[in-house]
Design a protein around this nucleic acid. Structure first.
Lengths: 193, 193
DNA sequence: TTGTTTATTGACTCGTCAATCAACAAAAAA
DNA sequence: TTTTTTGTTGATTGACGAGTCAATAAACAA
């Protein structure tokens, strides 16, 4: 039975199962057994590969963040002007893969985890900084010294809309969220309607 | 020993202890015993007055929401013009009592609770609707049909900044948060700097 | 005085869960 | 072939926590 080279496969399965289970459950109050079962293995194996529950959570977080980062990077290569790049960042953040119920719920719970785990906090801080830096970089040519504050506001709005969607999600909310943030961006850039 | 009329006192003590304990702990992962101990009584008594853990949480939530509502109401009586009232709403949201670590952490965890408990979800939805209605009411005279979208953005920004503060809190973050949202309000109202 | 309501707790039940371990199996290296 | 490495699980341990209950006691009503 035992095939070799299972480790990466098992780890990936556990990470995915963790996000799904947190999403399905709506809280971090999920057992290692539940996660392991969803990933098709025994709980002992989950412990074997990750050492403990918190490390499973952290791995799930890292994965979520890295998927998000990859999507932003992907969207950025298609964009040439600062304005296009800003739009790409916003669209990527609300893209389908980050905007599913489970993923949003997982993000929300990662914020909670960050209150206890300094590693989780570190990861979230990195995310926030990266978002801020990305926004800044592209706002500066358009707004100069006002870019700092504008980036803060756009970043905050993205997170805030995420939070709202954690509460109620509809089929159209991804589109609506994007539209609203883009409108805020236009305001920042001084477009009068 | 037993004095009569303890019920309201015990309940209030438990509600306060719950918020403090969630704040100190950073998660809903607090035991009834911890809460009861902090409130100076046995866990059996906590069960006696509230019936169960979830109902203790919900009572804490209702209390938090009603304190918030009271503060907004209070700020509004001093304000005469729509613009002043908008400012009052924003300032109240970031007022000292809502902006302490424990309270922010509690709010964050209430969002998590809302994923599991429909009553918690109901309460949060009420909060969001009330905020939206308040903003709308005062934005409409200034913006007309654009008020709807503007209210959505301002509301989202308030929540988003709250979320960020749940991660890192500094002595000046209350002031900074207020400043940023007021700046966003000015943008919405079309003031060019 | 006797009975009822309110306040209060220590001890207990029952369940759950993270983590560990012994044991088994197969591939690969020796 | 023997040994080591890698994969895998069922069973177990040890701890903890929500909720219940019986018992105790003060206040109040009859």
């Amino acid at each position: 039975m035992p095939k070799l080279g299972m480790e990466p496969i098992r780890r990936a399965a556990l990470v995915k199962a963790t996000i799904d289970e947190i999403g399905a459950n709506g809280s971090l109050d999920v057992t290692v057994s539940q996660i392991a079962k969803r990933a098709g293995m025994s709980s002992a194996l989950a412990h074997h590969y990750f050492g403990g529950k918190e490390q499973i959570f952290l791995a799930a977080m890292r994965h979520t963040l890295s998927v998000y980062a990859a999507e932003v990077r992907g969207a950025l290569i298609m964009a040439d002007t600062p304005r296009e790049r800003l739009e790409a960042i916003i669209r990527a953040g609300f893209g389908t893969s980050n905007f599913r119920r489970e993923v949003i719920a997982a993000w929300l719970n990662f914020y909670v985890l960050a209150q206890t785990s300094s590693e989780a906090k570190r990861l979230l801080t990195i995310y926030q900084r990266r978002l801020h830096a990305n926004l800044m970089f592209n706002l500066r040519p358009l707004l100069g010294d006002d870019a700092q504050d504008a980036a803060y506001r756009i970043g905050g709005l993205i997170d805030g809309i995420y939070l709202r969607e954690a509460l109620t999600i509809t089929k159209t909310s991804s589109k609506a969220a994007t539209k609203h943030v883009l409108a805020a961006l236009d305001l920042e850039l001084g477009k009068t309607k």
